[in-house]
Amino acid sequence: MSSRPSPQTDRLLDLVDLLAARPVDGATLAEIARALGLSKTTIHPMVVALTRRGWLLRHPERHTYRLGPALVAAGRAAARGHAVIDAARPAVHRLAAMTGLTCLALVTGAFPGERDELLIGEIGAPPQPPANGASGAAGGMGPAYRHLRLGDRFPLQPPIGSVCVAWSDDPTTVEQWLDRLGSDRPSDALAQITPSLAGIRARGWSVEVDRHLRERLDLLAAELGEDQRGAEHAAALRRILSEVHRTFGLADALPASIEPGGTYRATTVSAPVFDARGEVVVVLAAICASDQHHAPVRTGAEVIDLGERVRAAAEALTALTRGRPPALWQG
């Protein structure tokens, strides 16, 4: 049962997001109304109420609003309520500096009436690349995914979330994860993914491989099918695609093993942080692709090196927060 939408709540959240993006200058009532696509009459009562509660501050001369001290207190309370995220912040920034990649701390959790999701708890931006265009320490591409924000959510749909299910001793957990593929779930999905999950447990980290080519081929087939003149070509392309989809499945998106001499278009490398019960509470992830979802070719040795760096950071965070690996841990 999904929750019912709340327009007023959405407006409040949009307002906070807007002012969070302008922490110094803030915005006038007119600018807020224009950015949210609402009238000043609609926005004004909400702004006044938030200002009275200390969530917003109004500049006496410029008549601009910015986030207030009450939100600072709320943020500190949130940090104390999630000690692992508090500890993960410096770890994520160190990992970003070390790898030259955008790195994330993703919080595991669930929303009532919705599927489990991963929430961004911290974002570590890599150092700015040198003026000569040299890449980062691990072949990074400079700042990536600039559109990501704290609190953004990712659905746990394969291959995303493999590190969250790889150590589960409940067989239904993997089945429920695979069911999130819906009609795209292959009949042999469990057989495909079993070696991949075993490989993740053995390494202590997962790597997701770019499937962008498949997506582009699917789009091309659809575009050709809309043009009667391309119907014959579209039919031929669909036959090819059916073979591609059959041979390039979950096992290719989540390789069970990484050959040092091979090449891979890795998009994300992730490792789990465990709590005291041995359950995944945070996922550390290094984003290898760019904003345009372009994943550069890396050698297997480079992918392994990156995976070990992410794993070491996750293991250190598990130890720092007094977590423990689960019984199925093989790393």
Rank of each mutant, 00 (worst) to 15 (best):
H147C: 08
P45R: 00
G140A: 04
A125L: 03
A144N: 02
H44Y: 07
Q292C: 12
A191F: 06
N132Y: 10
A198H: 11
R180A: 09
G37C: 04
R229V: 07
L213F: 12
G262P: 11
S39D: 15
G75K: 01
T51I: 01
H147F: 11
W329T: 06
G278T: 04
I160V: 14
R4I: 10
A20P: 01
G278L: 12
L29A: 10
L15Q: 11
I85F: 02
A256I: 08
E208G: 13
R34I: 03
T268L: 12
P255A: 14
D169I: 04
G278M: 05
V165L: 14
M98W: 08
A285L: 06
D116A: 15
R203A: 09
I32W: 01
V310R: 02
P158D: 02
W177M: 05
R216S: 14
D116H: 10
F154D: 02
V72G: 13
C164K: 03
I258L: 15
T194L: 09
T263H: 14
D305C: 07
R229K: 12
P60Y: 00
S162C: 13
I32C: 11
L224F: 06
D14P: 10
A312Q: 05
A285I: 03
G142D: 06
R238P: 05
L284T: 05
T172Q: 06
P112K: 13
R149L: 09
Q176H: 13
R265Q: 09
P5A: 07
H93E: 15
R203Q: 02
D14F: 07
G161D: 01
T28K: 06
G133P: 06
A88T: 00
R298V: 01
D305H: 13
D17M: 10
V269L: 05
N132H: 09
K40A: 15
L13K: 10
D116Q: 15
I304C: 03
L317M: 06
T263E: 07
A286C: 02
L254Q: 07
L156M: 12
A236M: 08
A20Q: 12
R265H: 08
R324H: 08
P143C: 03
L241Y: 02
H93V: 13
G121W: 12
